[in-house]
Design a protein around this nucleic acid. Structure first.
Lengths: 226, 226
DNA sequence: ACCTGAACACCGTTCAAGT
DNA sequence: ACCTGAACACCGTTCAAGT
């Protein structure tokens, strides 16, 4: 678009993020990105080492947009708000989940986020030991990411016809029962399946309450391992 | 290998699974797979619609290997054992996580697994409403998958030198503290970071205990939404 | 009707030739 | 020294030509 500004790593990454938002992460190629920037493909290699580095930079760009943590709040509030705020930011970029989860290297931005979250637990009175396990149990939900294989909100884009549904219901009665009861719940959006945000907060609070209970019980991995 | 047996969908999928185990999922291409089977690439298209269908079939093949659920066990035991058994099966195929999570379509095998798991909760006295939310909260951990962005067991393949570590520790004191305390724990494998299986079971039991508490409290989404 | 070689429209990245 | 066009070694998939 602004094809004549000089290339720089931030500008390349920003363009890549915008392009991924527009055409999806799978369609983002070095060549396509170069085209978008009005530049020859090889010019990108001055600013990113390779495609993997590009991906990493894109993730970092996104994480750089996250709101800073609350200070002086109870650990539970601080963690909860941080996670929900990260969720709001990442949800604007549907490809973020895949990109974040496929990256294994921890950039400074990633480490910074984790560091501040660990800090919240420690400040809240969690032992280092418990904090460690709690961080593992938190998993990628710490980033506000939903971790479901089966997204039933996306399931029946075309609602199945009667016969197909009957067949499905016969083979998988419990799944059918669940789908029907979810649709019949007046609080959920009929047809659209589930309320993602409600489900996320349900799981988040379940975890946070669990963490709290362990802390208050004085849980330690040494005791747990017997 | 057994290049002269006639091609069939199961044989194609089995070969793809073995190939993925061997060279990694990213290196599995239609062309590479065809080579492995001693066949021209286009011959595969008689048995799989396209590469996406191949991936789906590979996942299904894996899930077909899962042990059947326990019968006549307490819901918590039944769910726990099923998940841990799925974990054992999927861990033999490191690419399974990515493949499962990138698939959005629910094959009969996937639906069958979910159906039986829903059935375990219902049989255990969970309401349909609670079961629904519990399944969402369970997420991909239901498949025995670990859902962590930050795999600290894989982190320091080359242990960082003193100076690098000091620099890291200065920037991310809490992360450093966590890493050190984990390494100093005599029960954990020093240097190798964390015990994945322990962390998985920790999170699993945290969730199961949380589910149980909600059930006993008579939790309902109607109450929760106020 | 079945099968398949060649072709199409892409990839990421190397490298040597140009300025 | 910097930049880049062409080339290399791949992709998934279409399609027309062969049997």
């Amino acid at each position: 678009m602004t094809e004549r500004a000089p290339l720089s790593r931030p500008r390349v990454l920003r363009a890549a993020v915008d392009l991924a938002d527009e055409i999806g992460i799978d369609a983002v190629s070095m060549r396509r990105l170069a085209l978008e920037l009005g530049v020859v493909p090889m010019a990108l290699y001055k600013h990113v080492a390779n495609k993997d580095d590009l991906l990493e930079g894109m993730v970092d760009t996104l994480l750089g947009e996250l709101e800073p943590p609350l200070t002086d709040a109870h650990w539970k509030t601080a963690v909860r708000e941080r996670v929900l705020s990260a969720r709001r930011a990442l949800q604007r970029h549907p490809w973020a989940r895949q990109a974040l989860e496929s990256r294994t290297t921890k950039t400074p931005t990633v480490l910074g986020y984790m560091d501040s979250m660990i800090g919240m637990f420690l400040a809240g009175g969690f032992s280092a030991d418990l904090t460690h396990h709690v961080m593992h149990a938190f998993g990628s939900r710490m980033w506000g990411l939903t971790q479901e294989i089966f997204d039933d909100s996306a399931t029946p884009s075309p609602p199945p016809d009667e016969a197909t549904f009957a067949q499905l219901a016969a083979a998988f009665p419990n799944v059918a029962n669940m789908a029907v009861s979810a649709s019949h719940d007046p609080d959920s959006v009929v047809g659209d399946g589930c309320d993602d945000q409600f489900e996320f907060e349900f799981a988040l609070d379940l975890l946070l309450d669990g963490f709290e209970a362990l802390k208050e019980r004085g849980w330690s991995s040494r005791l747990a391992r017997g």
